[in-house]
């Protein structure tokens, strides 16, 4: 069957509705793999149906997505909270029991070793205070990073792994007023010794340097980059960066969103 007759058979409309049998759906996918026109037709049908559904309020409510994402994000913390609660209850029960049985003995021991214990706890207090100061610093850093990630003024561009490292990914944020560029690595291999990753903007077929960045997962501010571009790309370069992009070692790429 030629692809036009196949398209006219109406099977693609059924496929997009999700109501074909699995065997039939797999046959459509197999056919689409060998006929790009069929794949384009499927995408066009899906796109127009999705757009229509959104326009007439028939698309699934976005609250379903919000709840699912909340479930995904809270699952580990809930079990941790549960474990902590169990642990705290056990400790409390043990403490009460222990206090009742050993109250007099503990009081006597406390009198005998009070000076030593006070010194120990003073050191502990200082340690805790230092840790708290570090935690506060981390919170302040994370808070400013969160501002960048969530700011409506920022354009977000997803970079995807190329053939060298298909699973790699990162996100670039560009402030549309100040043109400040930030990058957050999602997954990128540790660079070999003496090498660093470098971000480039592709404009009219030429790569413009945006800057090198460290291989860690915190959000990094690179530079200010003016003007439009077709895509952003990450290559592996000598430490300190290169003047020209080493195309053979391109790890990530993402198209401009507008």
């Amino acid at each position: 069957m030629d692809f036009k007759a196949y398209i006219d058979s109406g099977i693609l409309e059924l496929y997009v509705s999700g109501l074909l049998s699995e065997t039939e759906a797999q046959q459509v996918e197999e056919y689409a793999t060998h006929h790009p026109e069929v794949k384009q037709e499927i995408d066009a049908i899906r796109s127009s149906i999705n757009n229509y559904a959104r326009q007439v309020g028939k698309a699934p409510s976005s609250s379903i997505l919000t709840k699912a994402l909340a479930d995904i994000q809270k699952e580990p913390s809930e079990s941790e909270a549960s474990r902590e609660a169990t642990s705290t209850n056990t400790e409390k029960a043990e403490t009460v029991s222990s206090t009742r049985d050993w109250y007099k003995i503990v009081a006597s021991i406390a009198l005998l070793i009070s000076v030593g214990v006070n010194g120990y706890f003073f050191n502990e207090l200082q340690t805790v205070q230092n840790e708290q100061a570090q935690a506060n610093q981390q919170i302040a850093t994370l808070s400013s990073q969160l501002d960048v990630v969530t700011s409506a003024a920022n354009m977000e561009i997803a970079l995807y792994g190329l053939d060298v490292s298909p699973k790699s990914h990162a996100t670039v944020y560009i402030n549309e007023q100040t043109r400040d560029v930030y990058i957050k690595i999602g997954d990128l291999p540790v660079p070999p010794s003496g090498h660093q990753y470098q971000l480039w903007a592709d404009r009219d077929g030429h790569m413009h340097n945006i800057g090198v960045f460290h291989h860690n997962k915190s959000l990094q501010h690179l530079t200010v980059f003016e003007g439009d571009f077709e895509s952003l790309n990450v290559t592996l370069e000598e430490e300190g960066g290169s003047e020209t992009a080493t195309v053979e070692r391109a790890y990530l790429s993402g198209k401009a969103t507008s």
Partner: peptide, 11 residues
């Protein structure tokens, strides 16, 4: 000298 990088189309 700069080199263009081929941009892959990702579905």
């Amino acid at each position: 000298m700069s080199h263009p990088v081929p941009i892959l189309s990702i579905s």
